[in-house]
Amino acid sequence: MKLRTLRRGTQSLGILLGVFGVTGIGMTHLLFPGLHCYACPLAITVCPVGLMQNLIIAGTVPFYFLGAIAAYGLLLGRGWCGWFCPFGTVNDLLAFRKVRFVRALSPLKLLVLAGTAVAAWRLADTWFCKLCPAASLTASLPYLGLGVAEVNAPFLIHMGTLAAVVVGMALVARFWCRYLCPMGGILSLFNRLSFFGLRLRGDRCTECGLCARSCPMGITPDREINSGDCLKCGECVPSCGSSALSIGFSLPGARGRDPLRTARAAPGPDRVPPRQ
């Protein structure tokens, strides 16, 4: 099966989990491993960022959030963004232009995460939720249809953030995932430690640059493999003419399988060493 077909399948599963409430199942205790608003009428899972804010507002250390996110992060890292997150899938669908990655803006998503936590702590309110484009799409719009929401200032703010992010996504592939998503921010911390990841055989890499051209995040996989900005979507794997890249599960740090270690391996007799 083609890697991309498989990924579309798991992304469909992500959307399916997002709307699983259509079966009549009520809310569960599970945290969604991506960005999906728990206020969505069909949601059966809790948004991690929303829960984090509520737990902080309640004055407690969000152990459940931290534990679940660490578990998710260690399993797939940002693979959730590339393979599962419904809002990531929306980003994918609108990824028309793969522009170069503006590295300086990358930490913005961690700033958004920190700002969200600080706002919850100091202002005792869920400020991120009021701006979140995923909530705009999956809560504000459906509730307008259901007659619970109305066109008011908060609704217009939601629509404004959604429109801005959609424009951003159309101009820069995976715009939201690259720069703003707090969920992506926290998962990025686990990206090098997760069991799921890309592997690069440095002895095969010719540094032809095809992988960089195929990357929706605009990074250079052979140099920044499994870095915090890599979604592990695997788009680079089939693009590699010399089969230097592969993707799958392995124990991080295991001999011969650590992508970074492999990337730093000694060059083969007829290969130039990969730059790091």
Binding site: T28, H29, A39, N54, L55, T126
Partner: peptide, 21 residues
Amino acid sequence: QATQAWRIGSVLCTSCVGIEE
């Protein structure tokens, strides 16, 4: 906190998610 997560998810607080002020 798991129960709290479930409770928060089961209730739509209109002002919390920005459906109204």
